[in-house]
Amino acid sequence: MTRSGKVVFSARNLTKIYQTGEVPVHALRGIDLELVSGEMVVILGPSGSGKSTFLNILGGLDQPTSGEVFYGDHNLVTSTEKELTAFRRDHVGFVFQFYNLIPTLTAEENVQLVTDISPHPMQASEALQMVGLTDRARHFPSQLSGGEQQRVAIARAVAKRPDILLCDEPTGALDFETGKKVLESILRVNQETGTLVAIITHNAAIAGLGDRVIRMANGLIQSITQNEKRKSLEEIEW
């Protein structure tokens, strides 16, 4: 994928200050960035660099202290809570470090949870197939391994056919082999559906998988690198 696609997100001069206790924490100090359709972006940075905050704002989970975020021509900063809820429901897929599956629902039902409320979802079985878990559909989270749980989370995130898939440390809690399987699912989603994917990680090895690599530190973007050619999963190691 190249940067020739349509701009999906644009952030202008984003800042975020958390008031925790008496000391204000500057999580974002002025971020300008555009994300285009179909691309795969890896956001790298040590903990505390502001990458999760940025991702949460993009996903409509959090509001910036100042600046603007546009989804298409829709300003997320001025959106009401109701509008943000609808935005998340219709356009955003989340994948978290700790899976966040509902323990009382089976893999398939966890996916259905999303397809029940989305306007143009795919079949839950289709989403599970995409992450290679067709045969685990009727298992409860407690009956799945960590990697399998994370892949269910991915299936759940993509089942609504989101415009963007936001992954926060998706392999953070997994070992190398399992982590690779999870990444494989994410890559497949990106390639097969053309969904814009943003992965947050502190694992530099993953950087090669993206079209662009954005390095963050201290709430600022340090660098943006365009990968001429994305690496394949086999080529990376950590």
Binding site: L113, F140, S142
Partner: peptide
């Protein structure tokens, strides 16, 4: 990471009474 609490389909579900329910409804009953 925390392992999810263990669940299994109970006998009520084995009867198939809930199949038609939405996931949200299943979540509620379970």
């Amino acid at each position: 990471p925390p392992t999810p609490p263990s669940y299994q389909e109970g006998w009520i579900e084995a009867l198939g009474l809930w199949r038609r329910q939405s996931s949200k409804q299943k979540l509620f009953w379970r």
